[in-house]
Simulated assay, not measured.
Amino acid sequence: MNTGFRRVPVRCANQMMRQLLFRFNGNMQANVIIGGVDASGAHLFCTRFDGTTDPAPFTSLGSGNLSAMSILESRWSEDLSEKSACALACDAVAVGMKNDLNSGGMVSLCIVRRDFSVQWEEQFPLKDSPSRTNRLAIKPGCTTVLSTIVHQVVPWQGAPAGPKPGGGQGPVPGSGRASREEEARRRPQSVSPPGAKRWKGEGGGEGS
């Protein structure tokens, strides 16, 4: 709108957006993915709420971006067809919605082609989110235990005393005789009030 609705390079549009976000010092809290086609080709920018930006072949932002990024990283390639790219984007958004309560319930797909045509589609995601292509297989015993420390659990004051590690039953801190002995040990020793100081006067006599 500021440029009179004329076609501007994608980098120019991204620069205007990042300057606007930087001017608000991050208080706008809006993450933006800017993509488009100009005379130099197709471009995609990941612009965050503080004004920082990065060019990327694929990206995800928002509260469910971690789940969506896992799908994008496992299935993206440079030779994707338009149909495969649309399916990948929809699956990534669907996984992000399933693992995030703040996301919506519909996928809005925008297709920008090299002939400057734009197509907007809305569709509901699948009920079952796509599974990971590379499943994690962790074998038992692959993590080495370097050391082990066993801490004795002491019952809190007023709790029933449990058996000692040796099998016997003895006084436990916080109960019975042990608590009274510990309290007496921690109590400061009573000191009698100091006596009056005696001092010698100038004449050699004593006074109080």
Results as ranks from 00 to 15, higher is better:
residue 145 V to M: 05
residue 45 F to L: 07
residue 28 M to R: 04
residue 61 L to G: 07
residue 21 L to M: 06
residue 174 G to Y: 00
residue 66 L to M: 07
residue 166 G to Y: 02
residue 140 P to V: 03
residue 202 E to C: 10
residue 206 E to P: 01
residue 35 G to W: 05
residue 90 C to S: 12
residue 39 A to D: 13
residue 170 G to C: 07
residue 143 T to W: 11
residue 178 A to V: 00
residue 146 L to V: 14
residue 81 S to D: 03
residue 183 E to A: 13
residue 119 Q to D: 09
residue 160 P to A: 03
residue 44 L to K: 02
residue 128 D to W: 10
residue 2 N to A: 04
residue 201 G to D: 03
residue 57 P to M: 05
residue 126 L to I: 12
residue 133 T to I: 14
residue 23 R to Q: 10
residue 158 G to V: 01
residue 127 K to R: 14
residue 99 N to I: 01
residue 74 S to W: 00
residue 146 L to E: 00
residue 199 W to S: 14
residue 26 G to H: 00
residue 154 V to K: 02
residue 177 R to H: 11
residue 185 R to G: 07
residue 194 P to Q: 05
residue 116 F to E: 00
residue 109 L to A: 00
residue 178 A to K: 04
residue 47 T to V: 06
residue 54 D to L: 15
residue 40 S to N: 11
residue 126 L to Y: 08
residue 61 L to Q: 15
residue 29 Q to E: 09
residue 101 L to R: 11
residue 22 F to C: 09
residue 54 D to F: 15
residue 150 V to A: 09
residue 57 P to Q: 03
residue 102 N to F: 12
residue 18 R to Y: 06
residue 54 D to E: 15
residue 96 G to C: 03
residue 127 K to L: 13
residue 56 A to D: 12
residue 106 M to H: 15
residue 8 V to H: 04
residue 111 I to H: 03
residue 115 D to N: 08
residue 98 K to E: 12
residue 48 R to T: 13
residue 120 W to Q: 14
residue 180 R to T: 08
residue 159 A to L: 06
residue 139 K to R: 12
residue 140 P to D: 02
residue 39 A to F: 05
residue 44 L to C: 08
residue 115 D to Y: 03
residue 80 L to G: 03
residue 195 G to V: 09
residue 87 A to V: 06
residue 125 P to H: 02
residue 60 S to L: 01
residue 195 G to P: 04
residue 69 M to V: 01
residue 175 S to Y: 11
residue 160 P to K: 13
residue 45 F to G: 06
residue 171 P to D: 10
residue 9 P to R: 15
residue 35 G to E: 04
residue 147 S to Y: 08
residue 137 A to L: 14
residue 72 L to Y: 03
residue 186 R to P: 00
residue 48 R to Y: 08
residue 172 V to W: 02
residue 121 E to W: 01
residue 204 G to W: 12
residue 75 R to K: 05
residue 185 R to H: 14
residue 57 P to W: 07
residue 76 W to T: 03
residue 47 T to I: 05
residue 117 S to Y: 13
residue 12 C to I: 15
residue 167 G to I: 03
residue 16 M to W: 00
residue 153 V to A: 05
residue 70 S to T: 02
residue 105 G to E: 09
residue 87 A to L: 08
residue 66 L to E: 08
residue 97 M to I: 09
residue 59 T to R: 01
residue 126 L to E: 15
residue 166 G to D: 15
residue 176 G to E: 05
residue 181 E to M: 09
residue 159 A to G: 10
residue 149 I to H: 13
residue 133 T to L: 13
residue 83 K to E: 06
residue 176 G to A: 11
residue 69 M to R: 07
residue 122 E to Q: 08
residue 182 E to R: 11
residue 73 E to G: 06
residue 111 I to C: 06
residue 20 L to T: 06
residue 75 R to L: 04
residue 69 M to S: 07
residue 39 A to W: 01
residue 89 A to T: 00
residue 131 S to Q: 14
residue 171 P to L: 07
residue 162 G to V: 05
residue 88 L to W: 00
residue 26 G to I: 02
residue 56 A to G: 09
residue 67 S to W: 11
residue 129 S to H: 09
residue 105 G to N: 14
residue 40 S to L: 09
residue 116 F to S: 02
